[in-house]
């Protein structure tokens, strides 16, 4: 069902990774993404897998939940892999009709697919283990220096966290509306792609209407509680680096540097 989409969601649990300072996790994610682009042979995936595996085990998030998060990008993944598979020149190893698979194509397809999977899973780990409010606080704190250049750091961070927070709400709403229309005989599962796209109109229109209504209500509720942007705003739970956060930071730096030496 539509509620299975887990990207950008928070998965509540008690773990070291959950308790880690949001800034460290953010830096870790950036470092991990950079590290994924530092190597160009399959060997690089070994240490990356070890790193990702350790984080997943430590975070105590069930693998099944993580696998579900891959579902929405599966289409993109297959698409990219196929492109690479058929369009890379090289030594032909398999030929049929207009299709021509080369050794290089096979290698590229596998490499791209793996890298994308690592990217998606790795960056989802950040949102799975960090509440939206921690996430905003972390980003705000990291990007604070940009304020010098008149970048509205607080506002952007707030917008992002609201957007993240609204993903599950809108998914729930979509689910509800789909059910209501199904009860009126709507059929989302059969027909060709055009019919299916058209079948979504009865879902999208109410969804947009309700998204705008919610946005208006939220703005009013925030104003009613005297929200006036970031200026002079204090925090209930200010971010504070603890021992484990420094350990985490050291490990991250170590990991990225080590990945730089992988062939």
């Amino acid at each position: 069902m539509i509620r299975d989409i887990t990207i950008g969601q928070y998965y509540p649990s008690e773990s070291v990774i959950h308790r880690l300072d949001a800034r460290i996790k953010f830096i870790g994610t950036i470092g991990y993404v950079i590290a994924l682009f530092l190597f160009d042979t399959f060997w690089g995936f070994l240490p990356a897998l070890f790193w990702l595996g350790t984080i997943i085990v430590l975070s105590r998030i069930p693998l099944r939940f993580i696998a579900k998060g891959l579902k929405p990008v599966l289409f993109l993944l297959i698409f990219l892999a196929l492109f690479n598979l058929f369009l890379t020149p090289g030594q032909t190893i398999f030929e049929w009709w207009i299709f021509n698979i080369t050794d290089k194509g096979l290698e590229n397809a596998g490499f791209m697919a793996l890298r994308l999977m690592f990217l998606v899973i790795g960056s989802s780990m950040m949102t799975y283990t960090t509440t939206p409010s921690q996430l905003t606080a972390g980003m705000e704190s990291i990007f604070k220096p940009l304020g010098v250049f008149k970048v509205p750091v607080h506002e952007v961070a707030m917008m992002m966290s609201i957007a993240l927070r609204f993903i599950p709400i809108l998914l729930e709403e979509t689910d509800k509306i789909m059910k209501a229309q199904q009860a009126r005989g709507a059929d989302f599962e059969s027909g060709n792609i055009f019919r299916r796209a058209k079948a979504l109109i009865p879902v999208l229109v109410p969804l947009f209407v309700s998204a705008f209504r919610r946005a208006g209500e939220l703005a009013e509720a925030m104003e009613a509680r005297c929200y006036h942007g970031g200026k002079g705003r204090t925090k209930l739970h200010p971010l504070k680096m603890k021992g484990r956060d420094y350990v985490g930071l050291a490990l991250i730096i170590g990991f990225v540097v080590a990945m730089g030496f992988v062939p």
Binding site: A180, R184, D187, S210
Partner: peptide, 25 residues
């Protein structure tokens, strides 16, 4: 089934068309 807050499922341009959605399906 008429769901909770069923008015949130209205989508058509006119009342008549919206009510006819079910029969049309």
């Amino acid at each position: 089934i008429v769901f909770q807050y069923p008015e949130h499922q209205l989508f058509e341009a006119t009342v008549g068309k919206d009510v006819a959605f079910g029969p049309n399906n």
